[in-house]
């Protein structure tokens, strides 16, 4: 697999939030503003890259049976490091992220990448994969964050868009329902775009259908049910159905 593909696929094609539907909790909880979203995204990216690195390095030594606990410990360690660094230098951001900072540990993206990619690949691709996925995650939650901040507070990055424009803001968007709503509408919009694209593609190359798309997470290993199930959830999301030959229907 080309390195470039490894890097970029997390941006759109296999975006962890919008396509794979992983890491939803932070994607909604800390996206009241762009600032928090960016902070969370970077923190998660850091953990993702570091854990991928260590997992990739140690993939030969960790016995198969206990690898999940080992991965979790590795991830938890980096999360603790992020937490401590943030407490020292960005206490405000740490307060804003609240319990979702420690909860990066259970962010399915990180464990998923560790299990599905880093534990099977060499150092460099693993790091690039982590970086790509991390950027994809950051991108996604920044999109949510910016939408919610504009609609909910009429601000971008904490700066009001127009003077006195606050009156038109709908505060609901920085509350829980607004988070769900923004996420739902964004997902629907991306689904719509995906369906359009698939339709165009199908028209363009009428009949010649690519083989099965690269599975997001390796499903051939049944011993790791966690990952399988997450992937199952991912499949329920958007993206063209790559199951049936010639099918251009988005798979919901």
């Amino acid at each position: 697999m080309a390195v470039g593909n490894v890097f970029t696929r997390g941006f759109f094609k296999e975006n962890p939030v919008f396509v794979l539907l992983l890491g939803l909790c932070p994607a909604l909880a800390v996206t009241t503003g762009l600032k928090n979203a960016l902070g969370m995204g970077l923190a998660a990216t850091f953990v993702l890259v570091c854990s991928n690195l260590i997992v990739s390095l140690s993939r030969k030594f960790i016995p198969k049976e206990v690898r999940i606990p080992c991965f979790i410990v590795i991830i938890a360690t980096f999360v603790t490091i992020v937490k401590m660094v943030m407490a020292a230098f960005l206490p405000e951001l740490k307060e804003a992220l609240g319990i979702f900072l420690p909860l990066i540990v259970v962010n399915c993206i990180i464990l998923g990448r560790a299990e599905a990619f880093a534990s099977k690949n060499k150092l460099l691709p693993s790091v690039i994969d982590g970086l790509g996925m991390g950027i994809g995650f950051t991108l996604a939650i920044c999109i949510i964050g910016i939408v919610r901040e504009i609609l909910g507070a009429w601000m971008i990055f904490g700066i009001p868009i127009t003077r006195g424009g606050m009156a038109y803001s709908m505060k609901v968007f920085i509350l829980a329902p607004g988070g769900f709503l923004a996420m739902g509408l964004l997902l629907a919009y991306f689904n719509y775009l995906g369906a359009q694209r698939a339709r165009r593609l199908a028209l363009a190359q009428k009949g010649i259908h690519e083989g099965k798309g690269a599975p997001a997470v390796d499903t051939s290993n049944p011993t790791v049910q966690t990952i399988n199930s997450q992937n199952m959830i991912g499949k329920t999301g958007a993206g063209p159905c790559n199951l049936c030959p010639g099918c251009d229907k988005p798979n919901f």
């Binding site: 009949g207 259908h209 049936c244 030959p245 010639g246 099918c247």
Partner: peptide
């Protein structure tokens, strides 16, 4: 048809797309 291989033409007759038919 679970594969969308059958469409109805303007004469209300089914047309089977063998590319999609399994």
């Amino acid at each position: 048809c679970p594969f969308g291989a059958i469409t109805m033409n303007d004469k209300q007759m089914p047309v089977i797309d063998e590319e999609k038919c399994t």
